[in-house]
Design a binder for these strands. Structure first.
Lengths: 358, 358
DNA sequence: TCGTTTTACTAAATCGTTTTAGTAACTTTT
DNA sequence: AAAAGTTACTAAAACGATTTAGTAAAACGA
């Protein structure tokens, strides 16, 4: 419960240091020049060549002294550019989105861009409303993270982990085929044949592709995934709880398996909990393979073997691509898909199968 | 390495559905009315009472049909309100900030506010530049998370986990005294007398207060914290690595202790890793107490006993406070500090001391 | 010396709203 | 029937920049 602490009723904010906001007009008046001249000089416009250096110096000096800061709104209105992107994520606190956002920000800040964030919480209404509000605020482009595009792409869009091919939308995706090969290959090489798979939630855009490629990779090795060894995550909590529940469901079926390929690290952590509660040791009795390589993965107990997605890089790439698309004078050749490579990170949660199943 | 995937060069974005952006002027012309009338009606201004209902209906109908969307920049410029806040965090991907941001967003979205995020990465230059850029973009207020205020508070500011008392800045803080009591009390009651403490990084605003209150709580029970049992986190990585390193330093000193009070859950996780590597079992040989209660805490192995900070609530409270401060017609009575209460969450990483030390 | 170019600026339009200050045409009151 | 409201609107001035289309004076060229 929030409660008022030692309420001291401090003094009001100090009065704005005099002349807090000087407008260009005021500055111009102060110098006895027109706003045109000032604008030309301050923006180093081509037309400013004819202005003598000492006039320029006077202007710069006065601007600094009076702390002139152009009004961003006025400028944006006039030049029709806001230097702002919109970012739509399912939810901020799941680690995944945060890593991508980190990458986005690192790239945007280089060019003086900022971004507005909106979470849709997997709610249909927000999936439609958020983009609308962002567009209304004149963002120049939208980066969607693991989010279905439910709106007209009236401006440049990059979707991270999006799989729908939509005109005007660039998808930044992981090479899922490769990821599945790495994962299944790793487990196979350790001798695992009966592999359980925890599929992602229905709403996650990676779920389908991940499932298909894992299946293919398994079949290619002659160990098709038994449908009785697959469970699906349900519920949209970003906690390991959902993986825990799914794994209990799996265990309740009584089928034998020696490895679990989890949809992500979060659910892998939940799976480990469920397995150990049943007296199964990881990795001794069951190997668990995660996905993503979030910070927690390396320090979990046992440390998670996982398929790393370069999330930070994906964020960076998304931002870079969007910036480039804006700079390109023609949008006639939009790259549909950019793919990045996964890496297998072997740690302690997987091991050679101890008593191979038939 | 990002590489181009199946580059299909899809068709360009579809031509903007005709009349994509109707301006108020166009709409007015279309209806044979003035922009004044439309503005009055569409904003339901008091002066609109004299406009007959069927004119209003015509306006609404046309606005809908032509998909009129007011230009946010123009409006903001005129009314001098952007409905946007700036949020400054150390780094997005540490779980802590993300949880707070989640709370911030949930409160802001109720009122149609958005926020721009900026990370300072503990860099001095960014600590000064980020606020400047945000202010330049006309945010109406700033929420700082675990961030020192290094700029003139020319607009309303709420600092989450800030401890400096600055005019015009409201601090949202945890009741640290209570938190320390809960933590030390818990360990004490389990029989622990030699308690190691992992202090936070120098740059974290909670570090000092946390340390002082833990010391007090310990002293009050006659078990002053031995300086040879304290270590400080160094480095600004948001991974458990730093806690791991700190704990190894601690262990290297060869001092005996039965419990570790970590600065946060992340470092607690690193500490557990370090302890187990040395052959010490948690909680059998050493109890480890975390702080924050991030998602991973409950599912770590062993599950972390921790002092929960209501981070989501703190974000909400910060946003609510800022909104209220903006609505208040006078800023003469600014609450200096709002405090929220911690909770002790007992799980598996702490236990009764097995062989009590002298 | 006259015409052209260059130099050093500026007035006014523009971006798309909101808001102030009206104004005609009715309607009601006295 | 004149005065006082009301009703149903509008013209024009903001908001604070950028940009187009100038202009007057000085310098240059023939």
């Amino acid at each position: 419960m929030p409660r008022k602490g030692d309420v001291k009723n401090i003094r009001p904010a100090p009065p704005r240091p005099d002349g807090e906001a000087v407008s260009l007009k005021q500055l111009a008046h102060h110098l006895g020049l027109s706003t045109t001249t000032l604008s030309l000089v301050l923006n180093d416009a081509p037309a400013a060549v004819s202005i003598p250096q000492d006039t320029k110096d006077r202007i710069f000096k006065a601007a600094k002294e009076l702390k002139y800061r152009p009004n961003y709104l006025a400028r944006s209105l006039r030049v029709q550019r806001t230097h702002t992107f919109g970012v739509i994520v399912p939810e901020l606190s799941d680690g995944y989105s945060a890593m991508v956002l980190n990458g986005v920000e690192s790239e945007l800040s280089k060019e003086g861009y900022f971004y507005l964030t909106a979470s849709h919480l997997h709610r249909d209404d927000l999936l439609e409303e958020n983009p609308r509000m962002l567009i209304e605020r004149r963002v120049e482009g939208i980066i969607a993270v693991d989010t279905p595009i439910r709106f007209e792409p009236v401006l440049p869009i990059v979707n991270v982990s999006g799989h729908d091919e939509i005109d005007g939308v660039t998808n930044v995706v992981l090479n899922h085929r490769h990821a599945a090969e790495l994962g299944i290959g790793h487990l196979y090489n350790l001798g695992h044949r009966r592999i359980a798979v925890i599929k992602g939630q229905q709403f996650s855009s990676d779920t389908e592709e991940r499932w298909v490629t894992i299946n293919d990779a398994a079949r290619r090795r002659g160990i098709a995934i038994d449908s009785r060894l697959t469970v699906q995550l349900t519920g949209d909590s970003p906690s390991p709880e959902v993986g825990y529940e799914a794994t209990r469901t799996l265990l309740a079926r009584g089928e034998r398996f020696t490895a679990v390929f989890a949809f992500n690290d979060i659910s892998a952590i939940g799976a480990i909990r469920a397995l150990e509660e049943m007296g199964l040791r990881v990795p001794h009795d069951v190997s668990v393979l995660g996905f993503d390589d979030i910070y927690a993965a390396a320090f979990h107990n046992p440390a998670l073997t996982t398929i790393k997605q370069p999330l930070f890089e994906m964020g960076r790439l998304a931002a870079r691509t969007l910036l480039d698309r804006l700079k390109a004078d023609n949008e006639s050749e939009i790259t549909a898909t950019l793919s990045v490579e996964p890496t297998l990170i072997v740690r302690q949660s997987t091991a050679r199968v101890s008593s191979p199943t038939s």
